[in-house]
Protein backbone atom coordinates (compact mmCIF):
# COMPACT_ATOMS: atom_id res chain seq x y z
CA UNK A 1 0.00 0.00 0.00
CA UNK A 2 1.31 3.43 -0.96
CA UNK A 3 -0.13 6.52 0.63
CA UNK A 4 0.61 10.18 0.04
CA UNK A 5 -0.33 12.85 2.49
CA UNK A 6 -0.39 16.47 1.39
CA UNK A 7 2.43 15.75 -1.04
CA UNK A 8 3.53 18.89 -2.90
CA UNK A 9 6.50 20.28 -4.78
CA UNK A 10 7.54 23.82 -5.64
CA UNK A 11 10.41 24.41 -8.04
CA UNK A 12 11.54 28.01 -8.38
CA UNK A 13 8.39 30.10 -8.04
CA UNK A 14 6.22 27.46 -9.67
CA UNK A 15 4.13 25.01 -7.77
CA UNK A 16 4.42 21.84 -9.81
CA UNK A 17 2.41 19.55 -7.58
CA UNK A 18 -0.24 20.90 -5.22
CA UNK A 19 -0.98 18.92 -2.07
CA UNK A 20 -2.11 15.43 -3.11
CA UNK A 21 -3.69 12.84 -0.86
CA UNK A 22 -4.13 9.48 -2.48
CA UNK A 23 -3.58 5.83 -1.63
CA UNK A 24 -2.92 2.73 -3.70
CA UNK A 25 -3.81 -0.70 -2.38
CA UNK A 26 -2.21 -4.05 -3.12
CA UNK A 27 -2.20 -5.34 -6.66
CA UNK A 28 -3.49 -2.22 -8.36
CA UNK A 29 -2.18 -1.00 -11.70
CA UNK A 30 -2.76 2.72 -11.75
CA UNK A 31 -2.40 5.01 -14.73
CA UNK A 32 -1.56 8.66 -14.06
CA UNK A 33 -2.94 10.74 -16.91
CA UNK A 34 -2.91 14.41 -17.70
CA UNK A 35 -1.72 17.03 -20.16
CA UNK A 36 1.94 18.10 -20.39
CA UNK A 37 3.12 20.03 -17.37
CA UNK A 38 0.42 18.65 -15.11
CA UNK A 39 3.05 17.44 -12.62
CA UNK A 40 2.66 13.71 -13.29
CA UNK A 41 6.36 12.94 -13.58
CA UNK A 42 7.24 15.07 -10.58
CA UNK A 43 4.60 13.25 -8.56
CA UNK A 44 6.03 9.88 -9.59
CA UNK A 45 9.62 11.01 -8.96
CA UNK A 46 8.69 12.03 -5.45
CA UNK A 47 7.20 8.62 -4.73
CA UNK A 48 10.36 7.02 -6.12
CA UNK A 49 12.42 9.04 -3.64
CA UNK A 50 14.27 10.93 -6.37
CA UNK A 51 12.76 14.36 -5.80
CA UNK A 52 12.50 15.68 -2.30
CA UNK A 53 8.94 16.91 -1.62
CA UNK A 54 8.49 20.52 -0.55
CA UNK A 55 5.90 19.31 1.93
CA UNK A 56 3.91 16.21 2.75
CA UNK A 57 4.62 12.57 3.38
CA UNK A 58 4.79 9.36 1.39
CA UNK A 59 4.36 6.07 3.17
CA UNK A 60 4.65 2.47 2.07
CA UNK A 61 2.66 0.05 4.21
CA UNK A 62 2.44 2.73 6.85
CA UNK A 63 6.22 3.33 6.88
CA UNK A 64 7.13 6.86 5.88
CA UNK A 65 9.71 7.07 3.10
CA UNK A 66 12.83 8.52 4.69
CA UNK A 67 16.08 9.22 2.97
CA UNK A 68 17.96 6.66 5.04
CA UNK A 69 15.38 3.91 4.91
CA UNK A 70 17.22 1.68 2.48
CA UNK A 71 15.18 -1.47 3.02
CA UNK A 72 12.17 0.42 1.68
CA UNK A 73 14.14 1.68 -1.30
CA UNK A 74 15.07 -1.91 -2.11
CA UNK A 75 11.40 -2.64 -2.75
CA UNK A 76 10.86 0.16 -5.29
CA UNK A 77 11.50 -0.33 -8.98
CA UNK A 78 11.68 2.91 -10.94
CA UNK A 79 11.73 3.54 -14.69
CA UNK A 80 12.42 7.18 -15.47
CA UNK A 81 12.44 9.20 -18.69
CA UNK A 82 16.14 8.48 -18.89
CA UNK A 83 17.40 4.92 -19.07
CA UNK A 84 20.07 5.22 -16.29
CA UNK A 85 22.18 2.82 -18.41
CA UNK A 86 25.91 3.11 -19.03
CA UNK A 87 26.88 3.51 -22.67
CA UNK A 88 30.02 1.43 -22.67
CA UNK A 89 28.55 -1.52 -20.80
CA UNK A 90 26.68 -4.43 -22.32
CA UNK A 91 23.11 -5.17 -21.21
CA UNK A 92 24.40 -7.94 -18.94
CA UNK A 93 26.98 -5.66 -17.31
CA UNK A 94 24.44 -2.90 -16.82
CA UNK A 95 21.94 -5.21 -15.18
CA UNK A 96 24.61 -6.82 -13.00
CA UNK A 97 25.78 -3.41 -11.77
CA UNK A 98 22.27 -2.33 -10.80
CA UNK A 99 21.44 -5.80 -9.49
CA UNK A 100 24.39 -5.65 -7.14
CA UNK A 101 23.37 -2.16 -6.01
CA UNK A 102 20.06 -3.75 -5.00
CA UNK A 103 21.82 -6.80 -3.50
CA UNK A 104 20.11 -9.30 -5.83
CA UNK A 105 21.21 -12.89 -5.37
CA UNK A 106 22.33 -14.93 -8.37
CA UNK A 107 22.44 -11.68 -10.22
CA UNK A 108 23.91 -13.04 -13.47
CA UNK A 109 21.14 -15.60 -13.93
CA UNK A 110 18.50 -13.09 -13.02
CA UNK A 111 19.93 -10.61 -15.55
CA UNK A 112 19.97 -13.24 -18.31
CA UNK A 113 16.43 -14.24 -17.54
CA UNK A 114 15.23 -10.63 -17.71
CA UNK A 115 17.10 -9.95 -20.94
CA UNK A 116 15.31 -12.98 -22.34
CA UNK A 117 11.99 -11.67 -21.10
CA UNK A 118 12.40 -8.29 -22.83
CA UNK A 119 13.70 -9.95 -26.00
CA UNK A 120 17.27 -8.68 -26.12
CA UNK A 121 19.02 -12.03 -25.95
CA UNK A 122 20.74 -11.53 -29.32
CA UNK A 123 22.31 -8.29 -28.17
CA UNK A 124 23.25 -9.21 -24.63
CA UNK A 125 26.98 -8.76 -25.22
CA UNK A 126 26.84 -5.62 -27.34
CA UNK A 127 27.69 -2.26 -25.71
CA UNK A 128 24.51 -0.31 -25.08
CA UNK A 129 25.71 2.80 -26.94
CA UNK A 130 24.79 1.25 -30.33
CA UNK A 131 21.21 0.53 -29.21
CA UNK A 132 18.14 2.20 -30.66
CA UNK A 133 15.69 4.12 -28.47
CA UNK A 134 13.34 1.15 -28.34
CA UNK A 135 16.04 -1.34 -27.37
CA UNK A 136 17.26 1.00 -24.64
CA UNK A 137 13.72 1.29 -23.34
CA UNK A 138 13.38 -2.50 -23.18
CA UNK A 139 16.62 -2.75 -21.26
CA UNK A 140 15.61 0.11 -18.99
CA UNK A 141 12.43 -1.81 -18.15
CA UNK A 142 14.52 -4.86 -17.31
CA UNK A 143 16.71 -2.64 -15.14
CA UNK A 144 13.71 -1.46 -13.16
CA UNK A 145 12.65 -5.08 -12.58
CA UNK A 146 16.05 -6.53 -11.66
CA UNK A 147 15.38 -6.71 -7.92
CA UNK A 148 11.79 -7.99 -8.11
CA UNK A 149 10.31 -4.78 -6.69
CA UNK A 150 7.10 -4.78 -4.71
CA UNK A 151 6.25 -1.35 -6.10
CA UNK A 152 6.84 -0.56 -9.73
CA UNK A 153 6.90 3.07 -10.86
CA UNK A 154 6.98 3.62 -14.61
CA UNK A 155 7.33 6.99 -16.31
CA UNK A 156 5.95 6.72 -19.86
CA UNK A 157 7.10 3.13 -20.33
CA UNK A 158 5.56 2.76 -23.79
CA UNK A 159 7.47 5.55 -25.52
CA UNK A 160 9.79 4.36 -28.27
CA UNK A 161 8.54 0.79 -28.18
CA UNK A 162 7.32 -1.06 -31.26
CA UNK A 163 4.11 -3.11 -31.31
CA UNK A 164 5.87 -6.30 -30.25
CA UNK A 165 7.71 -4.57 -27.41
CA UNK A 166 4.48 -2.98 -26.21
CA UNK A 167 2.84 -6.37 -25.90
CA UNK A 168 5.93 -7.73 -24.12
CA UNK A 169 5.74 -4.82 -21.68
CA UNK A 170 2.02 -5.35 -21.12
CA UNK A 171 2.66 -9.04 -20.42
CA UNK A 172 5.38 -8.07 -17.96
CA UNK A 173 3.08 -5.63 -16.18
CA UNK A 174 0.22 -8.14 -16.03
CA UNK A 175 2.53 -10.84 -14.69
CA UNK A 176 3.72 -8.50 -11.92
CA UNK A 177 0.13 -7.57 -11.21
CA UNK A 178 -0.66 -11.23 -10.52
CA UNK A 179 2.25 -11.36 -8.09
CA UNK A 180 0.63 -8.54 -6.12
CA UNK A 181 2.93 -5.76 -7.27
CA UNK A 182 1.54 -2.22 -7.14
CA UNK A 183 2.21 -0.54 -10.48
CA UNK A 184 2.03 3.22 -11.01
CA UNK A 185 2.40 4.37 -14.56
CA UNK A 186 2.54 7.84 -16.07
CA UNK A 187 1.36 7.61 -19.65
CA UNK A 188 -0.38 9.26 -22.58
CA UNK A 189 -1.34 6.01 -24.27
CA UNK A 190 -5.05 5.37 -23.62
CA UNK A 191 -5.01 2.02 -25.39
CA UNK A 192 -2.45 0.65 -22.95
CA UNK A 193 -4.32 2.13 -20.02
CA UNK A 194 -7.48 0.21 -20.88
CA UNK A 195 -5.43 -2.92 -21.62
CA UNK A 196 -3.42 -3.08 -18.44
CA UNK A 197 -4.65 -0.70 -15.78
CA UNK A 198 -7.32 -1.11 -13.16
CA UNK A 199 -7.53 2.51 -12.12
CA UNK A 200 -6.72 5.92 -13.55
CA UNK A 201 -5.85 9.21 -11.94
CA UNK A 202 -6.14 12.41 -13.93
CA UNK A 203 -3.95 15.37 -13.04
CA UNK A 204 -4.19 18.94 -14.19
CA UNK A 205 -2.11 21.96 -13.11
CA UNK A 206 -0.55 19.96 -10.31
CA UNK A 207 -3.90 18.89 -8.91
CA UNK A 208 -5.50 15.49 -8.78
CA UNK A 209 -8.79 16.16 -10.58
CA UNK A 210 -10.26 12.71 -11.13
CA UNK A 211 -9.85 9.20 -9.81
CA UNK A 212 -11.70 6.43 -11.65
CA UNK A 213 -11.85 2.68 -11.91
CA UNK A 214 -11.09 1.37 -15.42
CA UNK A 215 -12.96 -1.90 -15.11
CA UNK A 216 -16.19 0.06 -14.91
CA UNK A 217 -15.40 2.07 -18.04
CA UNK A 218 -14.86 1.36 -21.74
CA UNK A 219 -12.33 3.27 -23.79
CA UNK A 220 -14.83 5.79 -25.07
CA UNK A 221 -15.87 6.78 -21.63
CA UNK A 222 -12.28 7.08 -20.39
CA UNK A 223 -11.52 9.30 -23.34
CA UNK A 224 -14.57 11.48 -22.93
CA UNK A 225 -14.13 11.61 -19.19
CA UNK A 226 -10.53 12.72 -19.70
CA UNK A 227 -11.50 15.39 -22.23
CA UNK A 228 -14.25 16.68 -19.99
CA UNK A 229 -12.06 16.91 -16.93
CA UNK A 230 -9.06 18.46 -18.67
CA UNK A 231 -11.03 21.02 -20.68
CA UNK A 232 -13.18 22.27 -17.83
CA UNK A 233 -11.70 25.19 -16.01
Amino acid sequence: MIETNGLSKTIGEKTIVRPINVSFQGAETVAILGPNGAGKSTFLNMIAGLIKPTSGLISFHGNALKKDDYTLKEKIGFLSHQSFLYDYFTPIENLIFFGRMYKVENVRERAKQLIDEVGLKLFQNEPVRSFSRGMLQRLAIARALIHNPEYLLLDEPHTGLDQQAVSILNEVIKARQKEGVTVLMVTHDFQQVTDTCTRALIMRNGRLVDDLSISELGQDTLDSRYQAVVKSS
Binding site: D68, Y70, I76, S80, F84, Y86, F98, M101
Partner: peptide
Protein backbone atom coordinates in the same frame (compact mmCIF):
# COMPACT_ATOMS: atom_id res chain seq x y z
CA UNK B 1 29.55 14.19 -16.48
CA UNK B 2 29.59 10.49 -17.35
CA UNK B 3 26.75 10.01 -14.86
CA UNK B 4 24.63 12.71 -16.43
CA UNK B 5 24.05 11.57 -19.99
CA UNK B 6 21.29 9.17 -19.05
CA UNK B 7 20.77 10.57 -15.54
CA UNK B 8 22.61 7.60 -14.07
CA UNK B 9 23.15 9.71 -10.97
CA UNK B 10 19.37 9.65 -10.43
CA UNK B 11 19.54 5.88 -10.62
CA UNK B 12 22.05 5.96 -7.77
CA UNK B 13 19.90 8.31 -5.71
CA UNK B 14 16.89 6.01 -5.86
CA UNK B 15 19.05 2.94 -5.25
CA UNK B 16 19.36 1.70 -1.67
CA UNK B 17 22.71 3.37 -1.07
CA UNK B 18 23.86 6.02 1.37
CA UNK B 19 24.57 9.26 -0.57
Amino acid sequence: LSEQKQDQLHGMIVAPADP
